[in-house]
């Protein structure tokens, strides 16, 4: 499919952080500033190749009071937990579908409470079954602001795991590309069921913070899964494919089916 045919259905590019004039501050935090419902069957990556169409699951409560625990082995352990059917699979959940997950419950953050006085004593969290929903979004920015997804649609904001998935469609095999990701905080990424990248530790979201080994995007559908975990911090991620020269791969389309 020619990319020009998609242009009419894309509304994403104009909202990217400017690399020209001043970016005047804006205090609003409404969801539409960051994410809008996915529109159109397919979307193109933005001018810099960032993947903006994602299917996002409501955050899974996973209390962590510090991000320093996000070691490689910890990430492999928590992301190996089967949270939902089809996790890392080839068939994507449906937009709007809901799942039940047993989580360690955290009460909503009291924003008027100022800085919390945390105890060093271990906290025992009540286990609760929560109903979580999948949402198909187009990001208004190069990055996917998971934090504002959470604060606008859920009670959770810190101590959470986010699952994201998208489909990268290719008209032909595209060899020797890398998945380049930045995330806040730690994350793991899979391409067509294979682990592609892990970003461990207390991460800030930095564009192209880490990249996978060279891989081939095959003709047709390629399923990209990501999981981001955060303790106290503003969760988000950005992802794109880059070629051997570091240039963005743009001859692809994105969908959430």
């Amino acid at each position: 499919m020619a990319l020009t045919a998609l242009a009419g259905s894309l509304t994403l590019l104009a909202q990217a952080p400017s690399t020209g004039g001043p970016v005047y501050s804006d205090s609003s935090t409404n969801l539409e500033k960051y994410l809008v419902p996915a529109s159109g069957e397919e979307a193109a990556p933005d001018a810099d190749g960032f993947l903006r169409r994602w299917l996002l699951l409501d955050p899974i409560s996973k209390p962590n009071r510090s991000n320093t625990v996000f070691t490689d082995s910890y990430l492999r352990e928590v992301f190996a937990v089967p949270y939902f059917r089809g996790q890392l699979g080839d068939v994507l959940p449906k937009d709007g579908s809901k799942i039940k997950v047993t989580v360690e419950y955290q009460p909503p953050v009291d924003l008027s409470g100022g800085r919390p006085m945390w105890s060093n004593e271990p906290v025992v969290y009540e286990k609760k079954v929560r109903k979580l929903q999948w949402h198909a979004f187009d990001s208004q920015r190069f990055n996917v602001k998971l934090f504002r997804f959470a604060t606008n649609l859920t009670e959770d904001r810190y101590g959470v795991i986010f699952w994201a998935v998208t489909v990268v469609n290719c008209e032909e095999d595209i060899p020797n590309v890398r998945l380049a990701v930045g995330s806040n905080s730690a994350s793991m990424w899979w391409v067509n069921g294979e682990e592609a990248l892990i970003l461990s530790g207390d991460r800030r979201m930095v564009a192209d913070d880490g990249a996978s080994r060279r891989l081939t995007l095959k003709k047709g559908r390629n399923v990209i899964w990501g999981a981001v975990i955060n303790g106290p911090g503003m969760s988000d991620f950005c992802a794109r494919f880059i070629d051997e020269d570091g240039h963005p791969v743009r001859n692809i389309t994105l969908s959430t089916k």
Partner: peptide, 20 residues
């Protein structure tokens, strides 16, 4: 070149994208 940015790092990455 301007006090309002964009502030780019040595590989041309905007600090609004985490560069530095």
């Amino acid at each position: 070149r301007k006090p309002t940015g964009p502030f780019l790092d040595n590989v041309g990455r905007d600090m609004l994208r985490g560069g530095g």
